[in-house]
């Protein structure tokens, strides 16, 4: 695709890089692709995603340097006094949380305290009984389980979710495949979701949540079934999203996850 370098450079500029640096990176990337004797889109995937990936990577700390943190951006999610009741039973009440772009928030608490319900409220899939929610329009939701069609392959999922977001099938497939590589996953062409391991299915879930480049990602214990390496990749990815200016809300019960987050919302014991 001939306009790939232009699109790549434009996205770098949009992400805040200096024009000279954006131009240099675009030239270098085009040169690298030429050395591989392949179009840049085949080597690096969609221009806009590779630009975001590169910007995030440029801000990833090396072993010797601490990770550079951006200043928190605009508010992406705001919960004020949110309450949920099912008939007479109160699941939680008076929940407050504000998450800005470039921040990660964790929702913790005992089993049955309403973590997943709160995340569904944030997504807009469940209506709160009280309180106020404000949320950015572009949101990605990754459920704890399910969320995929068992008889379809990963590529077909990319096409399906891409079409829902208004993407043409080819672009949706290449974007999905590119995002999958960041989780060290190369989707097999013929493998259906029901034939995937639990961890691989969760990777598919994650990619589907991110496919349309949302500003706010809502993740409900998305690492179930991940091996140690993938778990580390997952948190690197969360930090990359954060550094690219996105807001991330993760439901978790693993306390050592909390060192990576900016806000912790403890819903407490079982309702």
């Amino acid at each position: 695709m001939s306009d790939w370098p232009t699109a790549f450079e434009s996205e770098l500029l949009r992400l805040g890089l200096q024009p000279a640096r954006a131009r240099r990176l675009a030239d270098e990337t085009t040169q690298q692709a030429a050395e591989s004797a392949a179009p840049p889109a085949d080597v690096f995937g969609p221009a806009h995603l590779y630009a975001r990936h590169l910007v995030a990577e440029l801000n990833t700390p090396t072993a010797n340097f601490p990770r550079t943190r951006y200043q928190a951006g605009p508010v992406m999610l705001s919960l004020t006094g949110v309450t949920k009741r099912y008939r007479r039973q109160t699941v939680f009440e008076g929940v407050n949380l504000t998450v800005r772009g470039g921040e990660v928030a964790a929702i913790v608490g005992a089993n049955g305290c309403g973590k997943s319900t709160l995340l569904r409220i944030c997504a807009g899939l469940t209506r709160p009984s009280g309180g106020a929610v404000r949320r950015t329009r572009r949101v990605g939701f990754v459920p704890q389980d399910g969320g995929t069609a068992g008889w379809l392959t990963a590529e077909e999922h990319f096409t399906l979710f891409g079409s829902a977001a208004g993407m043409v099938p080819g672009r949706a497939r290449s974007t999905g495949a590119h995002l999958a590589t960041r989780l060290a996953w190369r989707p097999a062409r013929q493998q259906r979701a029901q034939q995937m391991s639990g961890g691989t299915r969760q990777k598919l879930n994650l990619v589907l949540g991110e496919l349309h480049a949302p500003d706010l990602l809502l993740l409900d214990e998305p690492y179930q079934g991940f091996d140690q390496g993938t778990y580390v990749d997952f948190w690197q990815q969360v930090l990359a999203w954060r550094d690219a200016g996105r807001a991330v809300v993760v439901v978790t019960h693993l306390l050592h996850d909390l060192q990576n987050v900016d806000h912790v919302l403890d819903l407490g014991a079982t309702a």
């Binding site: 997504a123 807009g124 899939l125 949101v139 990605g140 939701f141 459920p143 399910g146 969320g147 995929t148 069609a149 068992g150 008889w151 399906l160 979710f161 079409s163 829902a164 977001a165 208004g166 589907l208 949540g209 496919l211 349309h212």
Partner: peptide, 15 residues
Amino acid sequence: NASRGVDPRLRLTGA
């Protein structure tokens, strides 16, 4: 019935 898990996510994505 097979699409029950997918439909809410498709809606959120924009369908």
